[in-house]
């Protein structure tokens, strides 16, 4: 039994491990894995809601970017040349922290949560 798995792990390999359902003798000690496998875990599957950007209310304050617990927000330059959030739905759990923290513009939110259909 290896103490840990090889460090070089691909998305395909990770999915194979999950699918293979190893016994406890093959499972690395204490269920340890190479670092970074969380990036292959689609937490977006848990979401019941998704954020939507209303770009005219966004002041590029970056609050959503800093508050997102899953680092699912990246700030990308929009048509106006300013940074606005983009949501990575592979990781976004739909928690709504971004929308809650969004100060918006003149009381109008730049992020709202909508039901995921």
């Amino acid at each position: 039994m290896p103490d840990v798995l090889p460090t070089d792990v691909s998305d395909v390999e990770f999915k194979k491990w999950v699918a293979e359902k190893w016994g406890y003798k093959k499972l690395p000690m204490a269920g340890s894995t190479p670092a970074g496998t969380a990036k292959f875990f689609r937490t977006g599957d848990w979401a019941a809601k998704q954020p939507r950007l209303i770009v005219e209310n966004c002041t590029s304050c970056y609050k959503c970017y800093f508050y997102c617990p899953d680092s699912a927000i990246t700030m990308v330059a929009g048509e106006d040349g300013k940074a606005h959030p983009e949501f990575d739905m592979f990781y976004c759990k739909g928690c709504g922290v971004c929308a809650y923290e969004c100060p918006g513009r003149k009381g109008e939110k730049a992020i709202i949560m909508e039901d995921l259909k």
């Binding site: 269920g31 340890s32 190479p34 970074g36 496998t37 969380a38």
Partner: peptide
């Protein structure tokens, strides 16, 4: 040099 995750 050999990064791992423990306590997953």
């Amino acid at each position: 040099d050999n990064p791992v995750s423990i306590g997953l």
